[in-house]
């Protein structure tokens, strides 16, 4: 039942990420992909990596962006359109924490 064919951009909306601007990040991403039916930008409860807030996870591509700043967004959008990733800010958090969240996403928990 997991994630159908769509790409999910999950933007944490819990306290730490919100404090560091994740609401604006989510709105900007929603605007960027408003016409793209294959991509859905959704809020996420909390990835548990709040010390690297704001966090964004792209699934099923399994890209985890942390310490995201609004100025990083054009690069992230472009990379997603090209099928690449922004190495500079990608997969910086603990692998165990990432795998754990991917397991939840695999069964549709988001």
């Amino acid at each position: 039942m997991a994630t159908e064919e769509k790409t999910l951009i999950l933007v944490c909306q819990n306290s730490d990420c919100k404090l560091k601007g994740s609401e604006e990040i989510m709105v900007r991403l929603q605007e960027a992909f408003a016409d793209n039916e294959g991509i859905e930008v959704c809020p996420y409860m909390c990835f548990g990596t709040c010390e690297r807030a704001p966090n964004i996870v792209i699934y099923p591509q399994r890209q985890w962006y942390s310490d995201v700043d609004a100025s990083d967004l054009p690069e992230i959008v472009e990379a997603l359109q090209n099928g690449s990733r922004v190495e500079r800010i990608c997969d910086q958090v603990d692998e165990g924490a990432r795998d754990f969240i991917y397991t939840l996403l695999d069964v549709g928990i988001y």
Binding site: D16, M45, C46, F47, G48, T49, C50
Partner: peptide, 10 residues
């Protein structure tokens, strides 16, 4: 604590 935020929300 990140784990608590994540857990309780999950």
């Amino acid at each position: 604590c990140p784990q608590c935020s994540m857990e309780t929300n999950a």
